[in-house]
Simulated scan of single mutants.
Amino acid sequence: MVEPRAELQTYQEQLPAMLSSYDGQYVVIKDTQTVHFSPTYQDALDWAYATFGLDHFFVKKVAEDQDVVHFMRDLGPCPI
């Protein structure tokens, strides 16, 4: 399994190139591969779940300036 930070690192490394063609769209990254772009977050998420099921993937907006928002599906049980 790829370290979760690898997908964020892939995003950060590829962001300059993605901005020229995909600014404002949403990218799906699986492991260290950029695999899909969609115009909306929901479209990207739907595509990723249809393609990868419950396996891990990363979805993020392609933008130079962003709000800090992270979503992780596999958080495990909540410690009470």
Rank of each mutant, 00 (worst) to 15 (best):
A44G: 13
D43H: 11
R73Q: 12
Y22A: 03
E64W: 02
W47E: 06
Q14Y: 05
A44R: 02
T34F: 00
E7N: 05
T40Y: 02
G24A: 03
Y11V: 11
D55L: 13
K61L: 04
F57P: 01
L54S: 13
V68F: 04
V68D: 10
S38R: 06
V59I: 15
K30L: 10
A48I: 09
V28R: 01
M18S: 04
L8A: 08
D65M: 11
E7H: 08
Y26M: 03
V35I: 12
Q33W: 06
G76S: 07
D74L: 10
C78F: 09
D43F: 06
S21Y: 04
V35G: 01
Q66C: 07
V27R: 03
I80T: 09
P77K: 10
T32R: 13
D67L: 08
V35T: 08
L15P: 02
A17N: 08
A17V: 11
P77F: 03
K61G: 01
F57I: 11
S21M: 05
L75I: 11
L54E: 14
E3N: 13
H36N: 06
F57R: 01
R73A: 14
L8P: 00
V69T: 10
L19Y: 00
L45C: 07
Q12V: 08
Y49C: 12
E13N: 11
L54D: 14
T34C: 07
A17F: 06
Y22S: 05
W47L: 10
A50Y: 05
L19D: 01
F57A: 08
F52D: 15
M1Y: 11
E3D: 14
P4E: 05
D74C: 07
D74W: 11
E3W: 04
V59Q: 02
A17Q: 08
V27H: 02
R73L: 10
Y49Q: 15
M1P: 12
V35Y: 00
A63F: 04
T51K: 15
P39H: 06
M1G: 15
D55N: 15
C78N: 11
A50D: 15
L19P: 02
A17H: 06
V27Q: 00
Q12K: 14
D43S: 15
G53N: 10
A63E: 05
L15A: 03
Q33Y: 07
H56K: 14
V35H: 01
V28S: 02
Y22T: 02
P77M: 09
D67C: 05
A44F: 06
M1E: 14
A17K: 10
A6Q: 07
V27K: 01
S21Q: 09
P4T: 08
Q14V: 09
P79K: 12
I80P: 11
V68Q: 08
L54Q: 13
V62A: 02
T34E: 10
A44C: 09
A48P: 03
F57H: 03
D74M: 11
F37S: 02
A63V: 00
H36D: 02
D46M: 08
F58K: 03
P39T: 07
V68G: 03
E13I: 12
Y49T: 14
F57E: 04
S20H: 06
D23F: 02
E7Q: 13
D46N: 14
V68P: 01
